[in-house]
Simulated scan of single mutants.
Amino acid sequence: MTTDEFASVRYIVDDVPAAVEFYTTHLGFTVHTNPAPAFADVVRGPLRLLLSGPASSGARATPDDVAGAGRNRIHLIVGDLDAEIDRLRTAGLSFRGEVVAGPGGRQILLTDPAGNLVEIFEPASR
């Protein structure tokens, strides 16, 4: 795929190599652009995650009053949420809160090394 075929989301991170390792090791992303101190991008399916370090133009363009992690997050679908939670906990990762269930499925929030949220979601059986 070329970059214009992806849906891209930018996350501001403190440490680009640590973010690349987190997403590739634990969440099934692959490196799209070689990591550099300022910027890297990783992909999973049609999602291109732009990881912008403090020296990147994307991070510098963010106003200080909105620079922190918010309630927005990427949403990754899994087939077995409990197994995914066990796998990630075994790898030493921790979650924000507990599993939340609703009519659409079950989810839990994970944070990347910079505090950005990642929602791990299992759709309800139909």
Rank of each mutant, 00 (worst) to 15 (best):
N72R: 01
A114P: 03
S57H: 11
R106W: 00
G105D: 03
H75G: 02
F95T: 15
V78L: 10
G70S: 14
F121R: 10
D14P: 00
L27T: 03
I74T: 11
I77C: 09
L27A: 10
P35C: 12
R60V: 01
E122R: 04
S57E: 14
P35G: 13
V16H: 07
P17L: 02
F29P: 03
G68D: 11
R73G: 05
A61G: 10
P113I: 01
G102N: 13
G28V: 11
D41L: 01
L49S: 10
V13A: 06
L76A: 07
L50R: 04
G58K: 04
P63A: 13
V13L: 08
L47W: 05
G79K: 13
R44K: 11
G68N: 07
L27E: 09
R106I: 01
N116P: 03
R106V: 01
P113W: 00
A38Q: 13
G28L: 13
F121E: 11
F121C: 07
L109T: 13
V20G: 04
V16E: 03
G92L: 02
V31F: 10
R71D: 07
A67T: 09
S57D: 14
P113M: 02
F22H: 06
I85K: 11
N116K: 01
F121N: 12
D64G: 08
V99W: 04
A55I: 02
R106F: 01
F121Y: 15
E119S: 12
R48L: 15
F121M: 05
A36M: 15
H75S: 08
F39Y: 15
A67V: 12
L109D: 10
A19K: 07
P63S: 08
